[in-house]
Design a protein around this nucleic acid. Structure first.
Lengths: 246, 246
DNA sequence: TTGAACCCTGACGTGACGTGAGGGTCAAGA
DNA sequence: TCTTGACCCTCACGTCACGTCAGGGTTCAA
């Protein structure tokens, strides 16, 4: 094993190998001021043992997804910024993992179709369905009776991609307008009334006046206290009394 | 609801809203040749219903993490490329999720320390330990007796960051040299003998000649058939008979 | 006819480096 | 002494999927 003295100085490559990073990374951190190296008389960078500790902290925070600019503030600035950054990263990573799990299950779903020799178009359709179902509505399906689920799937299959896109566009637009209304306030209640009308139309277009689908939707809304967290947040918008039309 | 005819043409913004992407994204895909738009006489892009289907496929594959250049080949090229791409993405996403889980548990571990009012330095040390433990050796610890685990932790705590870095650098270098040896072959067996010697030294440095640690290490190696998949692959390098010194 | 709301094409910015290009430094061997 | 090779340095452009202006044209309703 190599012997180390407390005054050991390393040049760039040696220090990079010691820490398990590349030379270019050290150049980068040096220029950013994140890990400044001393210079020898010929201009070479010189690192010592104390720099290693700082570099390990940088690498650890980078592993958590913290941007380099924030890492600088954490290591040099006020200590509270660490806990704020950790909380922010935890939320961001949770969301990333949620999307990642959706992607993985979509892939696995599609790969099951490959074994049957399905053509590319069918596999792509499976992937799209797996993503949209899991991402938005998958957890909702448990509220519908099997008969209602079958009807929903049948209606969805009978739509063209264009029609489906128009429907989800209308929902997106509805939520955008609802958000805008909450931000800007409503002077005369006309905009709220118009939004409520659009909401009724969207609901009607979804149920297609089918009583089985309507009863499932009602059950879904009654149990809103148990929705997933990210839906709970969107639910707050519904709590506007002008829009409680369900 | 908006009515749609089969010959509906959309200009850029309308089509972007319909599909839930930005105008800039459509420009980008147009320039890449990924989704080419027709042009009206005044140079405006015109999209129609068939483009929407292609765009949805593009968005779905992008969601899975497939780079745009590959998406073009999948949608235009031979159909087998889809299944290859899916398999590659599945591996990549699994690895991402593994690292993401490590990061998340490291954050939660550190946040538990925040409640106790620990200073930043202690929290950072916890994060680094959580990462390195989970990433490399966490699953190994089950093979060691509680007494051996305590001794390992004690020895680790007594090392400076510099010494620990030198040890892991030596291991990294060992694996690099081992890989190089396998690629390039060994003419006279001298390099293999030298590597085997380094391996013995690294093992001895780890156990510190402690019999409890040594017996745990032996148990770990005996049970190598049950190691995690990513370690199984690294194990293949050990199967070189020159290096079976454990 | 004027303004709002569209449309277009460049072209630079983002983040964390990778990857050369072009040139200097230094110790060991011929 | 010269050369070779292994280091070192500083630009500066490339990556990836767009975001974000800047500068200028088109269309439609009031």
């Amino acid at each position: 094993m190599a012997q180390s003295s407390p005054e050991a100085r390393y040049r760039t490559q040696a220090f990079a190998q010691l820490a398990g990073v590349t030379v270019r990374t050290l150049h980068h951190y040096d220029r950013l001021g994140l890990l400044r190296a001393k210079r020898s008389s010929n201009g070479y960078r010189l690192y010592h043992a104390g720099d290693l500790e700082r570099l390990e902290r940088i690498s650890a925070l980078k592993f958590l997804g913290v941007p380099l600019a924030h890492i600088g503030r954490i290591l040099d600035g006020r200590p509270a910024s660490l806990s704020e950054e950790l909380a922010a990263q935890r939320r961001a990573l949770r969301e990333k993992r949620r999307l990642l799990d959706i992607a993985l299950s979509a892939i696995e779903e599609a790969e099951a179709g490959i074994l049957d020799g399905k053509p590319t178009a069918v596999l792509l359709r499976r992937i799209i369905q797996a993503i949209t179902m899991q991402d938005n509505t998958g957890w909702m399906m448990q509220y519908y009776s099997p008969a209602a689920q079958a009807k929903i799937a049948e209606r969805a299959a009978s739509f063209t991609a264009e029609m489906q896109a128009e429907i989800s566009q209308a929902w997106r637009q509805y939520f955008r307008d609802l958000n805008a209304l909450e931000r800007e306030g409503d002077q005369d209640g006309k905009r709220a009334a118009e939004l409520a009308q659009r909401h009724r139309e969207l609901i009607a277009a979804f149920t297609g006046d089918d009583p089985e689908i309507e009863s499932g939707l009602a059950a879904l809304y009654r149990d809103r206290a148990n929705w997933p967290t990210e839906m709970q947040e969107k639910l707050a918008e519904y709590e506007n009394p002008d829009v409680q039309t369900t």
